[in-house]
């Protein structure tokens, strides 16, 4: 961490930031460069899981009728996901999915939020592995729920055969298959990953760019200050993207579950 600051001050940081900058040195074994078993990213995911478990356990240990401040916070997060996502999208049947959606929303929100927390400053979701696993969970869940609700044959009939005359069905079924079963998990994962990746990259470009200009020519100092001001502005933009992507991921998962549960047309 201080090593990074020294590198920046000496103007030795490689300016155009690259994908390499997303692969942080290993923690255990300390400082190894080609070992990815336990890195800062891994640590952050565990920290996020720990924070969420402890937060919800602690706030709901002694629930009061008139909620305390922490209990109010936890209840409003849960209430928001339950009422504004689960029930809004799925209807009364959505209530039983609310606990999962809340967990998903909080986890994505918190891990995204690490992108702009000082000292963390990178989101685990900027590595495609984490969004991919979340997307696979959503994918398996909505298919499982649909198959259990309708039965195997009826579920696929519902989701593959649109209400249309028989002679255009051959044209439509491949599109339905592609957009329901192939694109969905992919687009869920890529949307979250690309947003967090691009956000981190932008912040790197403007921060490192400031140092690069400063060390290239002292007369460029005002421009590098401008670059750092941009970094601060972009941090606020990042905050917006962080909340939006957590919301979108949860809403789309809810929408897929809703589609799987929908009655036939």
């Amino acid at each position: 961490m201080f090593g990074q600051a020294n590198v920046l001050a000496a103007g030795q940081a490689a300016f155009p930031p690259s994908v390499e900058d997303f692969y942080l040195p290993s923690i255990l074994p300390w400082g190894a460069h080609d070992s990815y078993w336990f890195t800062k990213i891994t640590a952050m995911v565990w920290v996020a899981v720990g924070i969420l478990i402890i937060f919800f356990l602690a706030t709901y240990r002694k629930p009061q009728l008139v909620p305390t401040k922490k209990q109010w916070l936890a209840e409003s997060i849960y209430g928001f996901v339950r009422n504004n996502i689960a029930v809004d999208m799925i209807g009364h049947r959505g209530v039983r999915f609310a606990p999962y959606f809340t967990t998903l929303f909080c986890f994505v929100l918190l891990t995204n939020f690490f992108a702009i927390v000082p000292l963390f400053q990178i989101s685990p979701n900027s590595h495609i592995a984490f969004p991919a696993v979340l997307a696979v969970i959503s994918y398996v869940m909505f298919n499982y729920v649909g198959i259990r609700h309708h039965g195997f044959v009826k579920y696929f009939k519902n989701s593959l055969i649109p209400p249309a005359p028989w002679y255009i069905l051959p044209l439509l079924i491949p599109i339905e298959f592609f957009s329901t079963f192939l694109v969905r998990p992919f687009s869920l994962a890529v949307r979250l990953f690309a947003n967090m990746f691009a956000g981190h990259m932008l912040l790197l470009v403007f921060t490192l760019g400031g140092f690069a200009m400063l060390s290239a020519n002292a007369w460029l100092a005002p421009v590098s200050v401008l670059s750092w001001v941009m970094t601060i502005a972009l941090t606020f933009l990042e905050f917006l993207v962080i909340c939006l992507q957590a919301y979108v991921f949860t809403v789309l998962t809810a929408s897929y579950v809703q589609g799987a549960l929908a009655d036939e047309h």
Partner: peptide, 21 residues
């Protein structure tokens, strides 16, 4: 009706149909 996705979900569904097609 239960089977019409709302808001964001509907938008993404339409987009994926058009591009997917």
């Amino acid at each position: 009706p239960d089977d019409v996705p709302t808001g964001a979900g509907q938008g993404w569904t339409a987009l994926s149909y058009l591009i997917g097609g």
